[in-house]
């Protein structure tokens, strides 16, 4: 959908990664959105230009931030572990944490902050419970290196890997409600499986959850 803002930046990116499209589809036009770990701004750019959101980004890499700002996006250099506490509660309609939770120092606190500053949080992460990951560990006896975990254990930024069931358990422990859960396949496409659930945890490549505060 073309908008008057479409000409911002050199080339608004209409074709984004499939899993990002799934996330974008969950966000109503006009929402206030914070994308944490926004990278080079692929999803944020799409949301601003094609979903007319009031979009902000946070990214840990300075090069990523500078690229985003040079592209006309509102992005700050910041760290999910330390910089979410500054935001007031309910500052955003949606807070997105895509493929970043596993790299945070304190995922539990990050999740708490997400549902505090956002009315809803959308969180996606690679599922360490996927069948082929389980098999690799079982057969080789070594930490799996896969498409989602493509870095050796000693240099991976992914320090808090979890399965979909782990994630659901943590949400329950800290009083976060799962409003919607799904799993994606290796191509980022949704699979028709209820998440969390035994099959989702076995067959899902990524978990994708919409979270809210309880009570």
């Amino acid at each position: 959908m073309a908008t008057q803002l479409q000409s911002i930046g050199a080339h608004p990116r209409a074709n984004i990664r499939v899993d990002l499209q799934v996330i974008a589809g969950m966000i109503p036009p006009g929402s206030r959105v914070l994308d944490i770990g926004c990278g080079d701004g692929e999803l944020l750019d799409y949301l601003v230009h094609f979903r007319q959101v009031d979009g902000r980004g946070m990214e840990i890499s300075q090069a990523g931030v500078n690229n985003c700002v040079a592209h006309g996006l509102s992005v700050i250099q910041g760290d999910a572990d330390t910089d979410l506490k500054d935001y007031p509660s309910d500052a955003f309609d949606y807070v997105i944490l895509s493929q970043t939770l596993q790299a945070t120092y304190d995922p539990r606190e990050v999740l708490r902050q997400l549902v505090r500053i956002g009315k809803r949080a959308i969180v996606s992460f690679p599922n360490f419970g996927a069948w082929h990951v389980r098999l690799k560990l079982l057969w080789s006896g070594k930490m799996p290196v896969t498409d989602s975990y493509d870095v050796a254990w000693y240099e991976t930024p992914n320090i808090h890997l979890c399965t979909i069931d782990d994630f659901a358990e943590l949400c329950a422990d800290v009083g976060i409600a799962i409003e919607r859960g799904m799993v994606l396949d290796a191509g980022g496409r949704p699979r028709a499986l209820r998440a969390p659930g035994f099959l989702a945890n076995l067959l899902g490549e990524q978990g994708l959850f919409v979270l809210t505060r309880t009570g």
Partner: peptide, 18 residues
């Protein structure tokens, strides 16, 4: 400054130039 702007939910970009 950015933290304060965030606390005010202001629209802010922040870059550090090397």
């Amino acid at each position: 400054l950015v933290h304060a702007l965030n606390a005010a939910a202001a629209n802010v970009s922040f870059v550090e130039i090397p």
